[in-house]
């Protein structure tokens, strides 16, 4: 009773159709926007660093910490006010790459999962998106430092 339908289209043929149909991402425009916004965030970071050096007596090396904390605070505020995601849609990597992106990934997850309570909701889910940065950062630092240290030891011996 069931006539075996001939394959009208192979998967490969359709995937080619779909690819041709997909709008090209505006790579150049996205890069320009990312450059501008990323650059401006770093400019603001530089300003904050100098502010801590001149007004609070930090050194160039130690001012990095409060700078990061300040940028993170600003990013968390913008996320909480519901504004960050709109800026990010426009800026793309411009907001994701600076430490603001890290802060946003944690704040947005924390806000979202508050409805599941503070322990299992906020506490467990806060690192949902930021976790991989920490895990891979730590692990790659471990590997690299291990290689460096072993080389130094062998070189020293």
């Amino acid at each position: 009773m069931t006539e075996h339908k001939q394959r009208i289209l192979t998967q490969k043929e359709y995937q080619q159709m779909a690819k041709a149909n997909e709008p090209k991402r505006p790579v150049l425009a996205n890069c320009v926007r990312a450059f501008l916004v990323g650059g401006i965030i770093c400019l603001i970071g530089q300003g904050i660093t100098d502010f801590y050096i001149f007004c609070f007596g930090f050194t160039e090396k130690s001012a990095g910490n409060p700078t990061a904390a300040t940028l993170i605070l600003l990013s968390v505020l913008l996320t909480s006010l519901g504004v960050y995601d709109h800026i990010a849609q426009w800026a793309g990597a411009g907001t994701a790459v600076p430490v603001t992106g890290f802060a946003n990934s944690m704040a947005s997850a924390a806000l979202e999962h508050r409805t599941e309570g503070y322990v299992l909701g906020v506490g467990s889910n806060m690192f949902k998106l930021a976790g991989s940065v920490i895990v891979f950062g730590v692990f790659s630092a471990f590997v690299i430092a291990l290689i460096r240290t072993l080389i130094a030891m062998i070189g020293g011996v």
Binding site: P23, R25, A88, A91, G92, A93, A96, H113, K128, L129
Partner: peptide, 17 residues
């Protein structure tokens, strides 16, 4: 969004599709 993709305030850039 929360279940299938990202927290709603997450700053990811959605493509045109």
């Amino acid at each position: 969004e929360k279940q299938y993709r990202y927290p709603t305030e997450y700053g990811s850039q959605k493509p045109d599709t």
